[in-house]
Design a protein around this nucleic acid. Sequence first.
DNA 1: ATGTCTCGACGTTCGAGA
Length: 267
Amino acid sequence: MSIRLATWNINSVRLRIGLVAKLVEEHSPDVLCLQETKCADDSFPMGDVRKLGYSHVAIHGQKGYHGVATFSRLPFVTTARERWADKDDARHLATTFAAGPLEGVTLHNFYVPAGGDEPDPAINPKFAHKLQFLDELTSWSTRIADTGGRIMVGDLNIAPHPDDVWSHKQLLKVVSHTPVETEGMEAMRQAGRWVDAVRAHVPYPEKLYSWWSYRAADWTLADRGRRLDHIWASADVAARTTGVAVLREARGWQRPSDHVPVIVTID
DNA sequence: ATGTCTCGACGTTCGAGA
């Protein structure tokens, strides 16, 4: 039996619950991780999620900003909501599958800080926060590097490789692709012995994006995208992945999120 | 590439965050 696992920055789950339903109808993920849900836990559209067939739901939200949620058809037993970078701002959720093909596997759903506009931690506290978050992810990855059964997904808000952005040269000073971020992300990946499950199936140098700005008049025209949304796994789990899909077409749906779903299939 | 979304709030428009 194979499992489909999806991650998607939905940019308001209440506004786009219809698009979540469309994703489920068309791609039927067994596990769905959302970021930027933007609502408090008591406002979450839980009834809609259950109607979509997810009887196992974990949410970690707050009013207005950030927020993550994990839906599953497979039971999970433990839920952790860790505190990162000295803030309680609803950016992480961990669940461990209790039965089925992924039994014992822990899934971490992250929404890493965007980091503001100015890539200088001395003058931009949001960028300093992002770098601190990245440092903590690296320390955490080091601590769990020797364990198997790990998946981490989410909007990591960094496009790590020159072929993960439309123009490496033009984005070197743009937050999401600066050297301190891309090198930090690679250090984190190595510290945790994480495998980039998406690039395992769509190798470099093929261009691959998961986000296109709302600000472009026509996102398809210049195709100025970035790959900010990721699925990483420990080597044992990565070896079981058989394919990935980045749903570029979802950027053209009615009132879309600026991010598109990324899906991995695990045997 | 200063453009477009979403949210909450002493709201009918604005500032903040992305």
